[in-house]
Design a protein around this nucleic acid. Structure first.
Length: 445
RNA sequence: UCGACAGUAGCUCAAUGGUGGAGCAUUCGGCUGUUAACCGAAGGGUUGCAGGUUCAAGUCCUGCCUGUCGAGCCA
């Protein structure tokens, strides 16, 4: 009897099959039982008729507990009442393991309770759907990059210095060489890769030791960072919109049932097609002024300081929301005040106060999911920036070499994988977007 | 780090300062088409911790711990 995955069950109507999985739930009705079986690809309801199975099979079913592992044989039939739903008319049962009382019931649970049992929570249909979407997002990123000539370029996780010199890093002892830091970005190394291979991308974990306790932050998250030689900020944005359209449309195509399980409004995602709106930072500020969204800062004595949004400040959550709400696509905000951005960004030749950076804000208030820029390619300018930011010049000599030996205009961006999952799946909190989320207050399981 | 809110049965929640309850889960019984199945019964509690106010505290006050959300920072 053929072993079949539940996702393939519609191909086996009226045939005898074997399903290997776990008991998700069971209802009984005296001389009938309805076990729900899951195998990672789906859930199917079995029908056990007392008079139609050996006594041992009936007794074994009545011993089963939630999440017991079982191998079940039976024939596939159409559901008597529901269209496109199939059942298994059970003939035989083999118990692999009886589960102890399972803590996660098909009822509501709090987030802390579930996160303490994340290793079990992953089995529930919603989490399975999210992780399948995550898989499709990452696979479509890899396929897009491969098909467009990008070379996967793996960058180190142990690094000797702060990549951007801004956020706090995790540190660890590194033999006789002092401290090593966990990478917060592979970008600087990817720039070396771009000069060797033309177009590269990194895809791996990155680390930020910021004590950020919000629905959008992790201390360990996955980032995808393309880097292209002979590429300016406008071509960078061309790539962003082409790439994002590809990924989103492919997830819609291949993960329709998962997105439905998550209750996702697909029409919102179907809008994600090029071109995306491109607005400058100055234009974004005009929107904030027009909508009367002020900048609110708390002073040290706790008083709120409210003023019209001033040029030079970075946007907070309410500002991002106001900028995005008039659009039904991701919005690219470009040409930022240089002071608010990293040292490596190239200045606008037309205005030295402007950096050629771009942030991509996801629709529906999901906030920033991409940050990118054209990189400073002039040796003297870059040296000046490193000095201004009080970064260790010695550590950056290899990075400066890229400007000494055949410097070219180049650009790239960083995409937060979990933020992409967060948005596409319409999640409440980013901790569901990765199998085992790492946040300041959690490192287990 | 700062701010707001919360912590009661295994879980999700209720309880005017006056005898701590319900649903689910668990165990037992019933039911031949159930869909978070249903019906009946049983067991299950140091109300986060430490102080204080009061005749009396789950409830009010102080401190601490833990969590959620938000701010800052960012992908």
């Amino acid at each position: 009897m053929e072993r079949v995955y539940i996702s393939k069950i519609p191909d086996y109507v009226d045939q005898e099959v074997t399903i290997k999985g776990w008991l998700y739930n069971i209802r009984s009705s005296g001389k009938l039982m309805f076990p729900e079986l899951r195998d990672g690809t789906g859930i199917i309801q079995g029908v056990v008729v007392k008079s139609a199975v050996p006594e041992k099979v009936w007794e074994d079913f009545s011993r089963l507990t939630q999440e017991s592992s079982v191998i079940v044989k039976g024939s596939v039939t159409k559901h008597p009442k529901k269209e496109n739903v199939f059942e298994l008319q059970v003939t035989d049962l083999e118990i692999i393991s009886i589960a102890e009382p399972y803590p996660i019931t098909p009822k509501e649970h709090g987030v802390e309770f579930l996160m303490d049992r994340r290793h079990l929570w992953l089995r529930s249909p919603r989490q399975v759907a999210i992780l399948r979407v995550r898989n499709e997002i990452i696979q479509s990123i890899r396929d897009y990059m491969y098909e467009n000539g990008f070379i996967l370029f793996d960058t180190p996780i142990f690094t000797p210095n702060a990549c951007e010199g801004t956020s706090t890093l995790f540190s660890t002892d590194y033999f006789d060489l002092g401290k090593a830091y966990l990478s917060q970005s592979g970008q600087l190394y990817a720039e070396a890769g771009a000069f060797a291979l033309g177009k590269v991308y990194t895809l791996g974990p990155t680390f930020r030791a910021e004590n950020s306790m919000t629905r959008r932050h992790l201390t360990e998250f996955w980032m995808m960072e393309p880097e292209m030689a002979y590429c300016d900020i406008n071509e960078d944005m061309d790539l962003i919109e082409d790439f994002m359209e590809y990924v989103v449309q492919r997830v819609i195509k291949n993960c329709r049932s998962e997105l439905t399980e998550l209750g996702r409004d697909l029409s919102k995602l179907e809008n994600v097609k090029k071109p995306f709106p491109r607005i400058t930072y100055d234009e974004a500020i005009d929107i904030l002024i027009k909508k009367d969204i002020p900048l609110i800062r708390k002073t040290e004595n706790g008083e709120e300081h409210i003023r019209p949004f001033p040029w030079g400040e970075d946007f907070g959550a309410p500002h991002e929301e106001a900028i995005v709400e008039d659009f039904d696509k991701p919005v690219m905000v470009h040409r930022w005040p240089a002071e608010a951005k990293s040292f490596y960004m190239k200045r606008d030749p037309e205005n030295p106060k402007i950096a050629l950076g771009v942030d991509v804000l996801a629709p529906e208030g999901f906030g920033e999911i991409i940050g990118g820029s054209q990189r400073e390619d002039d040796l003297k300018e870059l040296e000046k920036r490193i000095a201004e930011h009080n970064l260790p010049m010695e550590e950056f000599q290899w990075f400066l070499d890229l400007r000494r030996y055949g410097s070219v205009p180049h650009s790239g961006f960083g995409l937060g994988i979990e933020r992409m999952v967060n948005w596409i799946c319409n999640l409440e909190n980013i901790r569901e977007a990765i199998p085992f989320a790492r946040r300041p207050n959690r490192i287990t399981p």
